[in-house]
Amino acid sequence: SLSVDNKKFWATVESSEHSFEVPIYAETLDEALELAEWQYVPAGFEVTRVRPCVAP
């Protein structure tokens, strides 16, 4: 099958004044980091952490 098993990760994104967490959907932690950097670094943010979303 061609289905992709995307998992939810939380990326911590920082600017000079703010820090916030955004959801990233990817297959692996490395891919989540790449996606977060691709989305947020060009906008002037720094991705400081990516972690798996742990269900309660």
Rank of each mutant, 00 (worst) to 15 (best):
E46T: 14
V41I: 07
V47N: 02
E27W: 07
L35F: 09
T12Q: 05
Y40H: 03
L29K: 05
E37M: 13
P56E: 10
A32M: 01
V22L: 04
E37R: 13
S19Y: 08
L2W: 11
L2M: 10
P23N: 04
S3G: 12
A43T: 04
D5I: 12
C53V: 09
Y25M: 05
E14N: 07
A36R: 01
L2D: 09
G44P: 00
E21F: 06
D30V: 11
E37Y: 14
E14R: 09
E14D: 05
H18W: 08
H18Q: 12
G44E: 02
K8R: 08
D30E: 15
P56S: 12
W38H: 14
G44M: 02
E46I: 15
N6L: 14
Y25Q: 03
E17P: 00
E46R: 14
V41N: 14
E21R: 05
R49W: 12
L2T: 12
T48C: 04
A55M: 11
S19C: 07
F45R: 00
S19H: 08
A26H: 03
K8D: 02
V54A: 13
S3N: 10
V13K: 00
V22Q: 02
W10Y: 07
L33D: 01
K8M: 13
D5Q: 14
F45N: 02
Y40K: 01
H18Y: 14
Y40A: 04
G44F: 02
F20A: 04
V50H: 02
V41W: 09
R51L: 07
V4R: 10
T48K: 09
V41T: 06
T28F: 03
Q39Y: 14
K8Y: 13
A32D: 00
F9L: 01
P52R: 06
E21Q: 08
V47R: 00
S19P: 01
D30N: 10
E21P: 01
P42K: 07
F9H: 02
L29D: 03
P42T: 10
R49P: 04
E27I: 10
L35C: 06
H18S: 10
A32R: 01
S3I: 13
R49H: 15
Q39H: 10
V22P: 00
V4M: 12
V4E: 09
V54T: 12
V50N: 01
E34T: 13
R51D: 06
S15L: 05
